[in-house]
Amino acid sequence: MHLLIPHACALAEACHHTLSDLDLPVLSQLLARMAVVERSEGDEYSYSPPHERALAAALGLAGPDGGVPWAAYWAQRDGIAPGDLAWGLLTPAHWHVGTDQVSMLDPQALQLDAAQSREILEAVHFLFESEGWALAYGAPTRWYAAHESLADLPTASPDRVIGRNVDAWMPDHPQARLVRRLQNEVQMLLYTHEVNDRRAERGLLPVNSFWLSGCGLAQPAAEPPDLVVDERLRAGLLTGDWAAWADAWRELERGPLADALAAQHRGERVRLTLCGERHAVSLETDTRGWWARWTSRRSRQAPVALLQSL
């Protein structure tokens, strides 16, 4: 069993305060019989967050920072044959215009259904096709673009951009100028589009832009049958709802972490990957003799300290 947990901690002081007050007995028991086997170091400014780096490693995908070809990977899972084209993931989004910056809200907050998503994609497709880009629909919050210029374009994960200034995450790359122009053109077209009028009548956010990420050529990927990626911490952390984030940790304790502990008690090898805002750490069941386990246990960090180090 390999349990991968994204958004296990953030650098925000409120996150560390919440974590300090959180009781995690199941995680404590699980870590007591585990040893660190791998640590992925990074910083909070990388385009690829730690959980994406860890997942890419588990799947056998490779690429530089912001260059793992997630679009081609997800396109295949959505039934689209990537061929030898370079693909990019287009995430429909709501950009909030503030007094001093433009920020992107979580695309999940749009509550897009397939019919509306297809209608919006149909409305904007000519803007992309006029530049030689081919578009394809994958899911309500997953559109795809194919063009040779996307082969080596580094881009930031949407999880890096949500709630933050979008300008700070635009790549310093010649091709990014075209992307920004397309974003502006999409904003102007959708500003008065009837689909957003209907959404406003239902109290839903308008779809007024997109984010491009995961660019590159398709790579063969291995699908580990024992890999479980649990993203229930995501929403609370990205919105700064620390009460909800703490509740999600308690759900993890009752669910996947309890399952991992039970597997460990059955003598099965368990791998746990915890991902924060900068780093990811992977631990595995320590199968060494009791003396080696006891001596190494004295130098291990407590669960809260380990999470806050990420």
Score class of each variant (00 low, 15 high):
P220R: 15
T141C: 11
E251N: 12
G203T: 10
G276F: 04
G83Y: 01
D247N: 12
L19C: 11
L150I: 01
R266H: 13
V179C: 02
R250H: 15
D84C: 04
V186K: 00
D159C: 07
V228D: 13
R266M: 14
P25A: 08
V124C: 13
G66V: 08
W143C: 06
L190M: 08
S209W: 01
E122D: 13
A109E: 15
W291N: 04
S209A: 12
L238F: 08
A244Q: 12
Q301I: 03
A62S: 15
A35Q: 13
T18C: 08
H96T: 13
Q183C: 06
L212Q: 02
L4A: 01
V26T: 15
E231G: 12
R199M: 01
M104G: 09
G255R: 07
S117W: 10
G79T: 15
W143I: 03
G66E: 05
E131M: 01
S28H: 06
H193D: 15
D113T: 03
L212V: 01
E223C: 06
R177W: 01
N196K: 02
A56Q: 03
W249R: 11
P64V: 04
A235S: 13
G83P: 14
D65G: 11
E44H: 12
H17D: 09
F126N: 00
A123T: 13
W245R: 03
T99S: 13
L274P: 01
Q301R: 15
T287N: 11
A12K: 14
L90Q: 00
G240V: 12
P92I: 02
A235D: 15
E268Y: 06
V161K: 04
L61R: 05
D152M: 02
G203Y: 08
G42Q: 05
A8M: 07
W87Y: 03
L31S: 09
L19M: 07
S130F: 05
G67P: 01
W242D: 08
D259P: 03
H147M: 00
E148A: 14
A14H: 10
H265V: 09
W245Y: 08
D23G: 06
F126G: 00
D247H: 09
C9Q: 07
D172G: 03
L22H: 07
L238K: 04
V36P: 02
G289V: 11
L205Y: 03
V195F: 04
Q308W: 06
E201H: 02
E194T: 14
A114F: 04
A32V: 07
E277Y: 04
A62E: 15
L252V: 05
D286K: 00
A10Q: 09
G98Y: 08
P140H: 10
D21P: 00
H173T: 05
A280D: 03
L252P: 08
L90V: 05
S309Y: 02
M34T: 03
L27D: 02
Y45I: 12
D106P: 08
L307S: 07
A235E: 15
R232N: 11
A200S: 13
R293P: 06
S48Q: 08
R198A: 11
